[in-house]
Design a protein around this nucleic acid. Structure first.
Length: 215
DNA sequence: TTGCTCCAAGAGGCCGCGGT
DNA sequence: ACCGCGGCCTCTTGGAGCAA
């Protein structure tokens, strides 16, 4: 699944078209804070393919980061994400705005698929049944959390953005390269033209600073 | 052909040293 | 005290070799 419509074209494109990138940030799609997820999802349910494209442009990068953190495998994450978009498209009609936010629903779809993929990997390792049950419980909790606490999640994401903006640009880049783009520390060092040891220290200290800021 | 084991290479986290 | 830098250690992953 690959669309090539650059930039943010969410509902009300004028509202976010002028939104600037973070200074020096990686070239990621620009998420729109006022993106109407519910309208996009309902449009998907009505068969409007362009709505799925807008959702993809809005959330693809962040969903990939979330999935990648769960499955811990880049190629598998992309497969999971592909399945997630298919599910979002085919199951959009089952979304009920009365039961939770559209964004929470989207993340619950992706997260459940990611957890299932990870569980399948672990099952291949012949894990005890009780461990698998725990993973099932975690998947249920994750879905529940995503649907019922979407507001809190958004607040948290906002705090992350604020705390990231407090970091020096080059250090913020390192964090984004590592945890959004999935680059290795070696690749990051090459990209920011800094010694590997320095990049390691920057990431380590920036994470400490982020934790302190978030707490 | 498949499955298993071993090993080398790479990645990331932690820590210490030296400079400012 | 803080920061840049690099080394060390641990863990993961992928490939080679071998046996069933």
């Amino acid at each position: 699944m690959a669309w090539h419509d650059p930039g943010c074209t969410a509902f009300g494109p004028a509202a976010c078209a002028a939104k600037p990138h973070l200074p020096g940030a990686p070239n990621l799609p620009v998420p729109c804070e006022d993106f109407n997820y519910e309208a996009a999802l309902l449009a998907c349910a009505a068969g409007e393919r362009a709505a799925l494209q807008r959702l993809y442009e809005q959330e693809a990068a962040r969903l990939l980061a979330v999935v990648r953190r769960i499955v811990r495998d880049g190629a598998l994450a992309e497969d999971v994400l592909h399945d997630a978009w298919v599910n979002i498209w085919t199951r959009a009609t089952s979304f009920d705005p009365a039961r939770g936010s559209a964004r929470g629903w989207i993340y619950s779809v992706a997260r459940n698929l990611a957890l299932n993929a990870r569980r399948d990997d672990l099952r291949e390792a012949d894990l005890p049944q009780e461990t698998l049950q725990v993973l099932d419980d975690q998947a249920s909790l994750a879905a529940w959390d995503a649907v019922n606490r979407a507001g809190a999640w958004a607040d948290s994401a906002g705090r992350v953005g604020h705390c990231l903006s407090e970091l020096e640009p080059v250090r913020r880049d390192c964090i984004l390269y590592a945890y959004v783009d999935g680059l290795t520390q070696k690749e990051i060092a090459a990209r920011v033209s800094a010694p590997l040891g320095t990049v390691k220290a920057w990431i380590q200290r920036s994470l400490v600073a982020l934790r302190a800021c978030m707490s």
